[in-house]
Design a protein around this nucleic acid. Structure first.
Lengths: 191, 191
DNA sequence: TAATTACATAAACAACTGTTTATATTAGCT
DNA sequence: AGCTAATATAAACAGTTGTTTATGTAATTA
């Protein structure tokens, strides 16, 4: 029993189309066609294309922020924290594949001020990953090395999940994926 | 002593701008402004925006193709082949950061026929990576598991090099990067 | 039942897009 | 010097873009 079922359908369709085409290439006319309505009707749901992007981007950014904060505040050791980060990414990816895709590709189309906010939050997120690695090195459970370098490797290893084709994820089991990616990040490919 | 110094400058500037903005967001007028000439002058250097994208994309795709073919035909064992693939990616990334960026982000704006060709080549490249892993498993030097999964993890671990900000690469030493990424892919982060 | 809110469309808008045409100037080669 | 190819621009083009205005109907609430 949703209060605004049409509005929800609108956001779902818009998110999907923006993920497929990218922000610049998606047109309001195309979105209207897919919704089966006139282009002007769209403006009953959102103020502008820009606002639409903003909402999608910050909604998912907030989920990442909340997730990593809980992990940071936990009493886990570094390895367990890293595992939790991997789990967080995989859960968010499987729950919101289109939003994640937009999150990676289209943040650069935010207007200046909002982009600054967005990048500041992303930086803060990445710092928390680095802190986990730092802790791991201190605990002696992780190889020592450049923190920013490890951060990039870890996030990249997770990123292919949401840059790869969306339909192909339908056949994947999130639990299995989690197990394999964790194994790869922790131990690499060598036997 | 180049035959067409202006043409080269044109391609260099166009590549840089397209990498910054993305194919859709880059306009011919903006490119003209950066070149310091009129927009119509651009068409003395290229037939169309589409052709420009095509040239950039297939030029770098060819380099990947040549590189991996040589590795495939070598007598290296699997681990050495994987190391050579890592070296190839890092060399190409440091030599052509902008082209690599376009290669990852803008292939979807090729027109249908050329996109098919592009994706076929990419698939062929990825298959060769999988074959290296398959060989490694057979030789007993690599952990057994899903080939496509390992392929994605390997390529992702390399991808952050060309998706991350271009200027930041100026301060990185390619030899050092190669050593660290190889270590990560082979042995992971755990001590 | 009346009033408010949600949902819809047609028509027009100004700005911007890639590209062409016609024409001129410059540089290199014989 | 004369010829050719490279380089340059102004003006115009047809199409597309996000968005607004004015206007209407359907659904919900009071």
């Amino acid at each position: 029993m949703d209060k605004n079922p049409r509005k929800e359908r609108f956001f779902a369709t818009a998110t999907q189309l923006m993920s497929e085409k990218g922000y610049k290439a998606m047109t309001m006319r195309e979105l209207a066609t897919r919704l089966g309505c006139d282009k002007s009707n769209i403006y009953n749901y959102t103020r502008s294309k820009q606002e639409l992007l903003d909402i999608i981007l910050f909604e998912i950014a907030d989920k990442f922020h909340k997730g990593i904060s809980e992990i940071e505040d936990s009493s886990y050791d570094a390895i367990e924290k890293l595992k939790a980060v991997i789990r967080l990414h995989i859960k968010l990816t499987f729950d919101n594949p289109d939003k994640l895709h937009i999150h990676v590709n289209d943040w650069k189309f935010l207007d200046q001020d909002r982009m600054k906010v967005f990048l500041r939050r992303r930086k803060s997120y990445e710092k928390k990953i680095e802190k986990i690695v730092e802790l791991g090195i201190k605990e002696g459970s992780m190889r020592s090395g450049d923190l920013s370098f490890y951060k990039n490797c870890i996030l990249s290893s997770l990123r292919w999940l949401y840059t790869s084709e969306i339909p192909s994820k339908k056949n994947m089991n999130p639990v299995e994926v989690e197990k394999n990616i964790t194994e790869f990040i922790l131990n690499g490919i060598k036997k």
